[in-house]
Design a binder for these strands. Structure first.
Length: 292
DNA sequence: ACTATGTCCTGCGAGC
DNA sequence: TGCTCGCAGGACATAG
């Protein structure tokens, strides 16, 4: 399941390979309902646009688009607003294509002759001859188009947030710390794997009420989260289930997991049996001895 | 304003 | 061996 490190890995590969490329044509499938109703808007924004940049916002992949000749910008030229707009603004990014991979979504850079996989919901043909393909068997992924930053996750970036702000996110929260870590309005990009792994490394039980954490524990948690996310990015993400990067390659960080999906096995630090419980409806793994 | 729970969706593995 | 069933989970909707 793509979380921050997996999305970061994908985004870096996409930035290398499709940034600057022009979009020649777009095909959108009929299947996922949200995509179906948004299809005309998405197609209109993508057609004949150029990809200026690819970046990550939480778990979202954001393609900054520049409208090409004969599309959105030309249409706007007839309105009065275009006349007062300075020339510099004309070349600025106007729209973003936002991709959320959900659970099983994959965004692949493919050769046109490569066979189209089952559950392919979108194909974007690029001027370079490559194709960008969105494949998602379970259809939890989402595609959308936005202007400005509306529709992007609002939480703090876990790798950027300073300690005081981090601590402030959990103040007065009665929800379990694990649930708080998963809340994208607080921190954006943390999912089930890295919530469990960071809590283990910080020595904190997942069910602890967020507001009950001491400043020392919060410091440990922030440090553990940064370390685990950075290490996972360096390893190209965790390939559990079916995550692969934009080139179809697997990550390596699943071999570094200390508790996630290791229930019943001995804790690598103390030897106690790793437990699995349900928190916020999510499988939650922890060491009953190392985590308090 | 929070918090907790249900919902979507398909592939896979456990169990009979 | 082959089937059914239940689980996996990110984000959002809804209920409390």
């Amino acid at each position: 399941m793509p979380e921050l490190p997996e999305v970061e890995t994908i985004v870096r590969a996409l930035a290398r390979r499709v940034a600057g490329d022009a979009i020649v044509s777009v095909w959108l499938g009929e299947k996922p309902e949200p995509l179906k109703s948004l299809a005309p808007e998405i197609a209109a924004a993508l057609q004949r646009s150029r990809i200026i940049a690819v970046r990550r916002v939480g778990k979202q992949i954001v393609f900054d688009l520049e409208a090409g000749k004969g599309s959105a910008r030309a249409a706007r030229g007839h309105g009065p607003a275009a006349r007062v707009r300075p020339a510099a603004a004309e070349s600025r990014t106007q729209r973003q294509w936002v991709v959320h991979l959900g659970m099983t979504g994959r965004l692949l850079v493919s050769a046109p002759e490569a066979p189209v996989e089952p559950h392919t919901h979108a194909i974007v043909r690029l001027a370079s001859g490559r194709e960008l393909r969105f494949v998602d068997p379970r259809r939890f992924g989402r595609l959308s188009v936005t202007g400005g930053d509306a529709g992007l996750a609002t939480g703090s970036e876990p790798l950027d947030v300073d300690f005081e702000r981090f601590a402030g996110l959990f103040r007065k929260r009665k929800t379990p710390i694990k649930s708080a870590l998963l809340n994208q309005k607080l921190l954006r990009g943390v999912g089930n794997i890295y919530a469990d792994e960071s809590l283990f490394r910080a020595g904190i039980r997942p069910r602890r009420r967020a507001a009950s954490l001491t400043r020392d524990e919060l410091r440990r948690l922030r440090r553990a989260l940064r370390q685990v996310l950075n290490a996972a990015i360096a390893a190209g993400g965790s390939s559990v289930a079916d995550y692969v990067n934009a080139d179809g390659d697997q990550g390596l960080f699943q071999f570094e997991h200390r508790v996630y999906q290791r229930d019943g096995e001995p804790c690598l630090v103390c030897g106690a049996v790793v437990k699995r419980v349900l928190v916020a409806g999510r499988g939650t793994h922890y060491c009953p001895r190392c985590q308090r």
